[in-house]
Design a binder for these strands. Structure first.
Lengths: 141, 141
DNA sequence: ACAAAAAAGGACAAAATTGTCCTTAATTAA
DNA sequence: TTAATTAAGGACAATTTTGTCCTTTTTTGT
């Protein structure tokens, strides 16, 4: 469904949102440890999220990453890493797939995609913090 | 959502189902042309579908491929090529993600996946033949 | 029997994705 | 000011996915 990089990105964002107490920054190693991901690869994804303006970063000692202040939906994270192909592209890969030129499963999947899009666009990181903080939801294993 | 190979596989199956008039076989070139896919790569996918017993093949002149007689759901095609990861695996990639050890989006995506699974398991190739035959649904472009 | 046609299958090639390593730039604290 | 710390970023490596090519096997029609 999502690329590995996107899976990491979602976990990164949820994690950073859940530790964001007192504007504290989390460093690369913290993040990679928290979500059980390869450190160097995680750094690349963090960079992308910063460039997409979903994260802010600071260098130097006591530097690190934190989530930007505005609310962020899962869709924004997915779009930043995987683009909008999952939500807007044809499931059979047709370049041109629309009401006037539909693939054979166009209608059948329309509903699924709307459902997916709905969940992604109405679920915000802040909605997911709680479970991680209380230890009822997990980002690794 | 699906791998490229799986997209081709779905188109292959729908196409073969829609030309299956009088038990006629379609050859590799017919198939690749119909779904606008690279011929040699298409051959590999056809092989997989034969081994998965979703297709039957015959060699020699007038040989080719045809869909097995029983009804086939989209889920069977997807499982044959991509496995069941899409429908059964954790969207965040956790090895162990369940009710007692859920990822932060476990519940949110449960519904989407059930929806997806429902569409895949209750849509049969025969349900999709008509549109392709009448030219109202397209397998290429 | 023989030539032609078609799938089967092995080996390889290209591209994309995932992952690593090392250097550079920025910042902080002493 | 200097050393330590941390993100930024370039280059490269490994793996997976996608795609190609060529030979072999099977079957058909003559």
């Amino acid at each position: 469904m999502f690329s590995k990089a996107c899976e990491y990105a979602l976990k990164i964002m949820i994690y950073l949102c859940s530790v964001e107490e007192e504007q504290k920054l989390a460093g690369l190693k913290d993040v990679a440890q928290a979500i059980d991901s390869p450190t160097a690869f995680t750094a690349k994804i963090l960079q992308k999220l910063v460039r997409a303006q979903l994260l802010e970063s600071l260098r130097g000692p006591s530097g690190g990453f934190k989530v930007v202040t505005r609310q962020i939906s899962l869709l924004e994270v997915v779009n930043a890493i995987d683009g909008d192909r999952l939500v807007t592209g044809c499931v059979l890969g047709l370049k041109e797939c629309s009401g006037i030129h539909p693939c054979p499963v166009h209608d059948k999947f329309m509903a699924v995609r709307d459902h997916l899009n709905g969940v992604l666009s109405t679920t915000y990181l802040k909605d997911l913090r709680g479970g991680v903080i209380t230890g009822n939801r997990f980002l690794r294993m």
